[in-house]
Design a protein around this nucleic acid. Structure first.
Lengths: 229, 229
DNA sequence: TCAAAAGTGTTCAAGCTACACCCATGA
DNA sequence: TCATGGGTGTAGCTTGAACACTTTTGA
């Protein structure tokens, strides 16, 4: 910082990449803009950073505005700052990504804000550089999920190992041996057998587990190589 | 982004964490501020983002102002945006970290800007939240260096395996078996034997290698588990 | 009773760990 | 000739990959 007599104060946007998992596919929550520019086109949920508002607080606010959720997994991804990225006025966007349990979010609120869930493999055109943001977020998710057990953030409170297996296949977009996967997950000791069985299954019912949250929190950073890609 | 009629335009700072390696210890390049606030105290090299200047370009400019170096390893780390992080005026800082070959930088230029290299284990007090930035950058370096072969960015053009070994021990701050390390490094196929020998060594002279830059570039992302921590 | 999904077991190869040993060099 | 640092080898264990088999359930 060279001097505080500096003329260039810039608009700071916050954009949120919101991941969800519906049991089969990895999903992204996008909004249809009802304001210019790019009115009627799809974009990430966003907002501007307010005066006296911490960056992370702003991101939480933007996320809650669309989903109603607070205290969910929310991480800073990257800041996008090409000088021409916004055609109206220069805007630097600090980008966050969030992993939510899709069952928990306020779907009425989301609809009221023109929110819509898209398959990650079937996204519409996005405004500005938002596609680039999404691509990076997916890479980061793949990266992180290989090192730390963050996949659980996308699951409902009760889940079976086959469900979790589907999630990881969705994240990485390729087949993962279910038997090796199962052993690996169970060996972490993060799952608690609830004694319940999955009722959805048409054939053999799968055991429902819940996450051992105390263990998850305390050992989160001890997992360096959670999953092989 | 809700509307472009938004009043809060904010100063955007760029701060650079500059890592170097002197053959023994991991180092950080800091500057002594000769301007207020915090005049006379140590800080990261920084500057403000200019109008019409891309973020990455700005970071490159800030780095070059102190080191004279261009086209070196420079990565965005995180954006720091607590509303009270700067006592004079709200400033959001986009933080970058850089790995440089300490031999290559313009030491006269650095000195002229009040730059000084510090041992990572023996840092002075830093202004604002710069200590937090440094701590995060080290964690990120440890993280990244475990997954990708970025350690080479800190080495001179010619280097021996024992030198590289010292670097990794400095990065992780603990002992690494030199024999296993050597085998692991050689097995990557990234090193080219130059036929030369290290002249510094007082006892047996070590083989000098250079990095196979073509292989390094093309296979960079193929290394997922470069090194066990 | 049969198909499909879920749980458990086994084998093999690769890679990592923890060592020991030998070689080259300058004092 | 000896201490020091550098290069190479090896045994054993762990881990992951690639498999097959059994069990449960609804149709």
């Amino acid at each position: 910082m060279e001097s505080y007599i500096h003329p260039y104060r810039i608009l700071i946007a916050i954009d949120c990449i919101i991941f969800g998992f519906d049991g089969q596919k990895l999903k992204l929550l996008l909004i249809k803009r009802n304001f210019e520019p790019e009115k009627g086109n799809w974009s990430l949920m966003g907002g501007f950073l307010n005066d006296n508002e911490d960056l992370e607080v702003g991101a939480g606010r933007v996320l809650a505005e669309l989903t109603g959720l607070e205290n969910v997994y929310l991480e800073q991804l990257k800041t996008f700052g090409k000088s021409d990225r916004d055609p109206v006025e220069r805007t630097v966007s600090v980008c966050f990504y969030s992993l939510i349990n899709i069952e928990d979010h306020d779907s009425q609120l989301a609809r009221s804000k023109n929110g819509h869930w898209f398959d990650l493999n079937d996204l519409p055109n996005l405004i500005f550089d938002h596609k680039e943001m999404v691509d990076l977020a997916l890479k980061e998710l793949q990266y992180k999920a290989a090192l730390h057990p963050i996949g659980f953030e996308l699951m409902p409170d009760l889940f079976s190992i086959p469900q979790l297996h589907k999630l990881y296949e969705a994240i990485y977009g390729h087949h993962i041996d279910r038997r090796n996967f199962s052993r690996k997950i169970l060996s972490t000791g993060l799952l608690l057998d609830t004694g319940l069985k999955n009722e959805n299954s048409s054939t053999k019912k799968a055991i429902l587990y819940k996450l051992d949250k105390a263990k998850y929190s305390s050992q989160f950073n001890a997992f360096h190589y959670f999953m092989n890609i």
